[in-house]
Design a protein around this nucleic acid. Sequence first.
DNA 1: CTGTTAGCGCGTTCAT
DNA 2: ATGAACGCGCTAACAG
Lengths: 333, 333
Amino acid sequence: MSGPEKPSRGRKVTSFDVARRAGVSRAAVSRAFTPNASVSPETREKVVKAAKELGYRVNYLARGLTTRRSDFVGVVAAGMDNPFRALQIEQITKSLVRRNFRPILLPADQGESADHVMDQLLHYNVSGVLVTSDAPPTALCAEFAAAGVPIVLINKADTIPSVDRVVSDTNAAGKLAAATLVEAGAKQLAVVAAPGPSYTARCRLQAFMGACYALDVEARVIPVEHNSYREGLAVAEALKGVDGVFCINDYMACGLIDGLRRLGGKVPDDVRVIGHDDIPQASWAAYELTTFRQPCDVQAEQAVSLLISRMDDPTTAERFEVTPVSLVRRATV
Amino acid sequence: MSGPEKPSRGRKVTSFDVARRAGVSRAAVSRAFTPNASVSPETREKVVKAAKELGYRVNYLARGLTTRRSDFVGVVAAGMDNPFRALQIEQITKSLVRRNFRPILLPADQGESADHVMDQLLHYNVSGVLVTSDAPPTALCAEFAAAGVPIVLINKADTIPSVDRVVSDTNAAGKLAAATLVEAGAKQLAVVAAPGPSYTARCRLQAFMGACYALDVEARVIPVEHNSYREGLAVAEALKGVDGVFCINDYMACGLIDGLRRLGGKVPDDVRVIGHDDIPQASWAAYELTTFRQPCDVQAEQAVSLLISRMDDPTTAERFEVTPVSLVRRATV
DNA sequence: CTGTTAGCGCGTTCAT
DNA sequence: ATGAACGCGCTAACAG
């Protein structure tokens, strides 16, 4: 007979059961499953054997109770309709899992939902929180930091004591966007973005306008409600006379391009368009969007690293890392 | 002075601290935070007050230790580049959170990674597992079921004892796709799909081919590696002579349309295209894709319901729920 | 290297 | 309705 002996007995097998079967103490069992613990190879073997026969697995929840740590990391995110957000989450969770953490994902719809949901996290002794959403207010983040929970923000604004951040290079993007459009012959520039919650969006907008001013070229701001496809589609009409536009993200840029074409406009002949994020759709043949690649994989790695280092030393001053963006030249400019 | 008194003392406040400050026993504190427990309103109030002052929160991990339950539910998913997957995950996590569970998200890349990662779940006493990926092998799922962990599969194949499933109506989709294409005047049909892991994809393919046979119209199967945009784009060349194609998902259909257009083909004049899933991009102006809407929100609700009901009664026979799909007529047919 | 003891933070009897 | 005592599954500290 092979395989676990009690495949589905009602009760869970505990370290006690394993200890008895292996003829050792419970501490020995514990040590057998603890890295760098001092156990003789033979006892370890006995334990492992007994454990396998019984189908035993260490209860990490109980372990966490005594070690006062948990492997859980909260990941709060909103706006998953934006493909970039989906990618971000994938990368973040992968980074986390790779380092042996368990990501608990909290969809933070705009509004107070975020508060309530994040609040729950405090009950689980999470060893950290990663925030990509625009939703969670500064106050809440500060509360976490004060509670001693490491927290790092991705592409968010607020500088909060003890809260680390990783942000893409908004300044470079804004300036280079302006320069690129001008260089391509655009005379009447515009930037479309929601004045709303997205921090990086606002920064890119400012950098863009600043650069336009420096270049002495006319530029205006076209506001929208959300930085989404639908808004991009709808806002195309408001672009009369504009021949070069910086769209604050690709998601909206796709809508903008579709909107321009629907109105009979030619891209890039009539209007040059440049986006941001380099979502998969940006490289789709229907768009061939020139855009800035934002490396969400390295951002994820950085964020997790920051988290870990703060877990090790919670007292360090808050850090701020900026990730470089790179222009991907395609067909829309 | 308002607000928590010990905002960031090193040690966590426990029920003991609250009990002492409120002048009651620890049991009283416990009961104050347990629904339907017998506590007098006054003691409850005292406890709540003291708790607030101290910034106390029940440790759910410790609670789970004695109640032998946890609020965690594993969510394993792969292929997040497909927008439909992203939506699915969003809906699932929202459903879970709404019912007061904590979704722990496991990105299951193809291959053995899934095994290892899911394996970890057993250490956390998860009270259930939701699987949307194509990756996890039957054996692993069975192991969970045997271990007494409720598990429900979304759009997956294998019928396993004690494992519930919710699947979209593949049969209806396949048949209706064929009928719709024929009705639109197509004479030479094709279905493009990967023979690979996706269960629903295979089913839709079969239903489609069956319907074509019944309708006495020529149809062939165009195989691809993955059901992705890139493959769709590349496979357009293989469609010489075809004037009506059922693409197994929208993600690939977008690629297919772009591929056809690149070759100078007109959609729907030369080739009618019909997809599946109704991802956001399907309604983008660049595509206007006729497709089947798969209601991943109700699927999520159903899956969670199944999970819960099995948690309540683990002995029920495995159930199989099919969710209806509906044809969304747009411009590609 | 090993076993013994003493908690981790909490829920639950069982008396009162 | 309330408190005392015990146990959940495990690890840390201390002997030996």
